[in-house]
Design a protein around this nucleic acid. Structure first.
Lengths: 130, 130
DNA sequence: CGGTATCCGGTTGGATACTG
DNA sequence: CAGTATCCAACCGGATACCG
């Protein structure tokens, strides 16, 4: 047979994990989701709470999250215009795993950054010591 | 006072969440971590299990994870050469939250992709119907 | 208020070939 | 076996200005 041998846990190019990480892997998506955890916000509020994102990039982030069914965009036809963004039920189910990650970050990122500094110092030492 | 007013949950530019998402947000990092969950693997094994990553990119991913103290790189001076990669204790603490995300993905990514298709169809309809 | 339009630089990641 | 070297296209995200 010309199919590949089984080699344990393989992550295919289109496996769910890859899709999800491509989705939440951009710079702003998870911040937006977490900021919306407590309820709907309008565009200008989002801009204030997710700093410091330009309107173009925030718009793109919101549109792509809407496209994926993670949030709803509601336009109130009034003057001045008002647009609310809120998590969908699907989007809300993402909150617990994201919260777990945020807690890991709060507990461990400082350690990670220290390791990073040490690594860089070693590299510098090696380079200089040649 | 010229400090900004408090406006609720703000994610600063250098908050732990942002650092973590910048860290795990690249295309391969989380896959590598999960593949290493069951124990150390050598370079060629990683290449087989994390498809389809080129050696240059895999090397870069591994180096940056090593830099952040999430995995160790061990060189066995023998012929042919052998290099093992394994999670550090810190790296292992990242597994539970990543597993939670993977499970979310397995349960919900199909829904997400369906929403995506529907959104695109609507957009097409709007564009064509102008 | 809630966006768009345009331009642009940096980074990411892939193709390919080569090396100790 | 475990990488490096080189080149390169695409995409991401930021700056700035403008619009309904």
């Amino acid at each position: 047979m010309d199919t590949e041998d089984f080699i344990g846990n393989v992550f295919d190019a289109d496996c769910p994990s890859r899709v999800l990480f491509a989705r939440i892997g951009d710079k702003w998506a998870t911040l937006v989701i977490e900021v919306l955890a407590d309820g709907p916000l309008r565009f200008s509020e989002l801009r204030k709470r997710v700093k410091v994102v330009t309107p173009k990039v925030l718009t793109h982030t919101l549109r792509s999250l809407e496209r994926d069914g993670l949030l709803n965009r509601t336009v109130y036809p009034q003057v001045p215009s008002r647009v609310d963004y809120e998590l969908t039920p699907l989007g809300q189910t993402l909150l617990p795993p994201l919260t777990a990650l945020r807690q890991w970050a709060e507990n461990n990122v400082s350690t990670m950054l220290r390791a990073r500094d040490e690594y860089d110092e070693e590299q510098d030492a090696v380079t200089l010591g040649l």
